[in-house]
Every structure is written in structure tokens, then in C-alpha cells.
């Protein structure tokens, strides 16, 4: 019996090596170790041996089995690798051979800029308010300390609509009426930004559209000062444009703020060194701001002695154009996909 075991164990490596696929190997394994395999049959014949002979034969059987299994495992692993390699070779793909790219949509540049701005202000503790685009004269002008026939009305070329008495209902010329709504509908403290679409009686050209967008900010609280305004705008400026860009304020005139200020930032193209875009001044004019005029506070029922506040506002479209180097604002509004798809995010 020991001889049979030795013979089988010696012949096994050649049989195993002769298997040329995983399937053939499986058949060889069954012949050697399976239920009807030679070693299994020998094991069944062990019952006729004496205890000592059984012990010796059992040990030899186990050794043979172990050595055969080791050779089998090695061969199996080799055959599997070879088969995977040949399968992989047939599955080769050229990843540049693409027939159709799935299309990705895009957010409008105004939306992208809007979201960016809003996110910065939310980070600074502001909520986001909105209001109607068609407004009454009261919200757009009167409440903002711009009475009828005030020469300052000439600062806005207003589009009126045929509702109510003539020239009483209009397409809002700025986002400032939302300030009035926020102050009328709520109570201080107010920390809000108001992005929105605005309208002017303007002929479209490379830098003007009759419809464009602004974002406006309003803070009303106790002891709010011009220094808070300057600090808030400076914080916003570095957060939005980057740490190397700073802001400055200089006096202009707006009827709804006093003191009023023009809000400039370092030119983002030359970082203040002077270039063509900023007319060699190193500064870009961004928007207007100031302390909310006491008359405006009174108009919404707030006591200017108790409450003070600041407001600021600037155009959104120009920021969008500047970021991407677009030189004609009209491009944003044609709906031309060749333009829209250039700005996936």
C-alpha cells in the first residue's frame, strides 16, 4: 500500500503539469483526490491493515495528499493568471475612441456669480431677501428719499408700466425697494442681502443692458456706524476677490444714504498697479453705499435716534463678465449655447 501511495504521489506532478486549463486541472484533481480518486480508494482499503500498518499508511496518505494539494494550488494559480491575462488582452478598449460625450448643462453666469456672492454674505451672517420686479413709485423712489421731481430722479432712466395712475408703477430701477420691504415687513436687527434683477431705459450695448442684476446689502441695528460699513465691505472684498484685494470709500451723492460713499476695490487685473481696465488708476468702481438716510428710516417707521444702519449695492453682471473675461454683456442674454456651455461652473 505504501508503494501505491508513493507511486501516486510521484506521478501526480506530471499529471498536474499536463493540465492546460483550469477545467482540465479540475478533472485531474478529481482523479487524484476526489471521492472516486485513487488516494480516496486507498484510504478506504486501510480498514484491512493492523493498527500499526494503519498508522503508517494514514500518515503516508496525508503526506501525499498535502504535497499533491500544494502542487495543484500552484498550478491552479498559474492557469488562472494565464486565463485572466488572455481575457484581459481581448477586452482592450481605446479610451479616446468615444462616439458621443454625454452632455453636461451649465448654470448661467449670473446665477454662478449670484450664488458665489450670496454664499460669502451668508458666511458673514446675512440672510437673503427678495422682492417684486414691478414696483410702486413709493418703494422704488419715495420711501428712499427721492420725491417726485427730485433732480436725483434723473440718475435713473425709469421704465414705467401701464398700471395705476401714469408713472406710478414701474420696473424697479435698483434692488433698493427690497430694503424698504425688508424694513417694513420685519423688525431690526436686520442683516440681509438682496440680489435681484433690475431694469433701466437703456439701449443695449457692450456694457449696458436694459435688464441686469444687482446685489444690495442692508444692516439695521443699534449703534451701527460708518466704520461698520467700511469693515463689512473690506471683509467682503477680501473674501470674494481674494486677500490681496482691498476696498476704499470716497464721497458721492445718493439720496437714500448719508454719509454716502462710492465703493472701490483694487483693480483685480493689475492688483492696483494700474492697467487699461482700471484706466491706470489701480481702482475699480464697484458700487455705492452709505449710512441709511434718517428720512428712509422714518419712512419705514423706525426711529433714527434708536436705530442706525448701512446699505450697499453693486452690479452683479460686471463681476460675472470680469471673472471670465467676457467683453460684451449682450452675450450673456442671447441664450446661445456656444456661449453658455463655456462656463460649466
Amino acid at each position: 500500500m505504501i508503494d501505491d501511495i508513493t507511486r501516486i504521489a510521484a506521478a501526480a506532478p506530471a499529471l498536474i503539469a499536463g493540465a492546460s486549463s483550469v477545467d482540465e486541472l479540475r478533472a485531474v484533481e478529481a482523479d487524484l483526490l476526489g471521492k472516486k480518486g485513487e488516494l480516496t480508494l486507498l484510504k478506504k482499503g486501510m480498514g484491512g491493515l493492523d493498527p500499526e500498518g494503519r498508522k503508517v499508511a494514514g500518515s503516508a496518505l496525508n503526506d501525499a495528499r498535502d504535497s499533491i494539494e500544494a502542487v495543484l494550488a500552484l498550478r491552479r494559480s498559474d492557469l488562472e493568471s494565464a486565463e485572466r491575462a488572455s481575457m484581459v488582452a481581448t477586452e482592450q478598449l481605446d479610451l479616446t475612441e468615444l462616439l458621443e460625450l454625454p452632455e453636461r448643462g451649465s448654470l448661467h453666469l449670473v446665477t454662478q456669480t449670484w450664488d458665489r456672492l450670496v454664499d460669502v454674505f451668508i458666511g458673514m451672517g446675512f440672510t437673503v431677501a427678495e422682492g417684486p420686479e414691478v414696483e410702486t413709485d413709493w418703494y422704488n423712489f419715495e420711501a428712499l428719499n427721492i420725491p417726485a421731481a427730485h433732480p436725483a430722479r434723473g440718475m435713473w432712466d425709469t421704465l414705467y408700466v401701464d398700471l395705476g395712475d401714469p408713472e406710478t408703477v414701474l420696473l424697479r430701477t435698483h434692488t433698493s425697494p427690497v430694503q424698504i420691504r425688508v424694513m417694513t415687513d420685519g423688525e431690526p436687527p436686520i442683516y440681509a442681502v438682496m440680489p435681484g434683477r433690475v431694469y433701466r431705459r437703456d439701449t443695449a450695448d457692450a456694457s449696458h443692458m436694459p435688464v441686469f442684476h444687482q446685489i444690495e446689502g442692508l444692516v439695521v441695528d443699534r449703534n451701527i456706524s460708518f466704520a461698520d460699513l467700511a469693515g463689512t465691505l473690506e471683509a467682503f472684498t477680501s473674501a470674494y476677490f481674494g486677500g490681496s484685494i482691498h476696498s476704499r470709500l470716497r464721497p458721492p451723492y445718493f439720496p437714500f444714504t448719508e454719509p454716502s460713499a462710492e465703493y472701490d476695490i483694487n483693480c483685480v487685473f493689475c492688483e492696483g498697479n494700474g492697467c487699461r481696465t482700471c484706466g491706470q488708476t489701480g481702482w475699480l468702481e464697484l458700487g455705492g453705499c452709505g449710512m441709511v438716510h434718517p428720512t428712509v428710516l422714518t419712512n419705514v417707521g423706525l426711529d433714527p435716534e434708536e436705530w442706525s444702519g448701512f446699505a450697499f449695492g453693486f452690479g452683479l453682471d460686471r463681476l460675472a463678465l470680469m471673472r471670465h473675461g467676457v467683453d460684451d454683456i449682450r452675450e450673456m442674454y442671447t441664450g446661445d449655447v456656444r456661449f453658455l456651455e463655456q462656463f460649466p461652473s
Binding site: 451672517g125 446675512f126 460708518f226 467700511a230 469693515g231 473690506e234 471683509a235 470716497r250 460713499a261
Partner: peptide, 16 residues
């Protein structure tokens, strides 16, 4: 205006 030092906002208000 340039001499009025900006006061960094320290608002206790939350934005959303």
C-alpha cells in the same frame, strides 16, 4: 473717509 477705520463685522446673526 480713508481715516475712518473699518470695524470688522462681529455679527452674532446667522445667515441662511
Amino acid at each position: 473717509y480713508s481715516k475712518i477705520l473699518g470695524r470688522a463685522p462681529t455679527s452674532a446673526h446667522t445667515g441662511s
